[in-house]
Design a protein around this nucleic acid. Sequence first.
DNA 1: CATCCGAGGTGTACGACGTACACCTTTTAT
DNA 2: ATAAAAGGTGTACGTCGTACACCTCGGATG
Lengths: 235, 235
Amino acid sequence: MPLATQERTPVSRSRALRAAVELADAEGIDAVSMRNLAGRLGVVPMALYKHVANKEDLLDGMVDTLVADLPRPEPGPGWKPAARATILAAREMIVAHPWLRRVIESRTRRTPTVLTHMDSLAGAFIAGGLSADLTHHVMHTLGHRIWGFSPEAFDAPEEPDDATPPADPQEVAAMVEHMSATYPAITAVTLAAIDGDLSRLGEGCDEQWEFEFALDLLLDAFERLHTGSRGSRNT
Amino acid sequence: MPLATQERTPVSRSRALRAAVELADAEGIDAVSMRNLAGRLGVVPMALYKHVANKEDLLDGMVDTLVADLPRPEPGPGWKPAARATILAAREMIVAHPWLRRVIESRTRRTPTVLTHMDSLAGAFIAGGLSADLTHHVMHTLGHRIWGFSPEAFDAPEEPDDATPPADPQEVAAMVEHMSATYPAITAVTLAAIDGDLSRLGEGCDEQWEFEFALDLLLDAFERLHTGSRGSRNT
DNA sequence: CATCCGAGGTGTACGACGTACACCTTTTAT
DNA sequence: ATAAAAGGTGTACGTCGTACACCTCGGATG
């Protein structure tokens, strides 16, 4: 005999998606399995398939859930600040949900929600007077930066292990020596980034700063292309 | 009684990695499972673990195998053409192995081989006179472009299904109408890219061109930052 | 009222996957 | 000849996504 019916609000697509986002936030994206998520919802795994087509659809939906809340670029002052603000808002979303970057990267479908976001950003450029052609190239150049992240080829790998133990200075010095001999350029770059202060070695760099640096570099370059071609060339 | 001993060259790490690359080239990255790869090598799955630590290590190794063959930037004429040539060579590698992009994106370790490539590229900038600081930002800005691809947020999704059937023009026109109403900016951009010729709708855009456009845009911007700061600022 | 239906939930089962562990065999070095 | 290392085997476990057949309600409809 079942316990006193603990009334369970029935699962719905949006409830499932929100639960999945919460689960990913709390325990990481690997914890988001159909079985695990179903458990959270007090339901058997297969029940989820009444609300999502399959796991891909679940992940698409999770992205949609978050992307739908992004602000649209404000029409007005100019395309550059509008695009900048929109992209930085997307970045806040990425920072708030660390698993989101990888999930977006792995998406293969373009959902209407995602298309809407892309359209409103492209629309900002067009409204600002950029030609459709230039807007096209601009969107390509921005790439995933549209979503608030750039592909961080140069980044320190995420270290899931507990923070590196302090390690005595002598050992560190020897390591740096070795690095410097093997990878002179990278070492020079790294040392410059921490002002030569070896105690700051584990810090990693200021991603936000790097992101905005690259973003502004690109926006400025776009502006140069745009104004440089007004009336004379066909971009 | 076993068949006449068909002499099998013993598996080695590099043989396993090369076989894995071939397998991925031939059947896609999903076909690269420990079991499948072992089968190809005429060996039981667990035998692979004598040569790779685990699957992540296998994937790392596959990347290394290819990255090791990349040319280093030539010292000489200037950092810009040197970096450009190196990055475009990496791009050729990516194009030749379509699975490689995703695998590189998913790597979490930086192997010595990969560090060596990054170091030689960073070294080109430094040899060209860019400060360590500027080189740092430059590497970040290039992001995955270092590896010959940019994150294609704006790309058509890869369509694994057979090419879209020709679809009669009337239907296409209606679809475009609908798209244009729902996503005006994207539609304008897309139509511009195909010169309004609806028969070219499925084409997708010239990725190589977009890649080089973005690459050159960035390299030019770096140059402007560099020469603009010579002797006056500390970048 | 009786009936039906469809939306939501269940239970079982299958075929992958990565890999731990204990064991065997072959090659090589001494 | 012998010992040890290097390479290969076989079994087993836990996890995953999901196909398929079934059940169970709460209305809507005759």
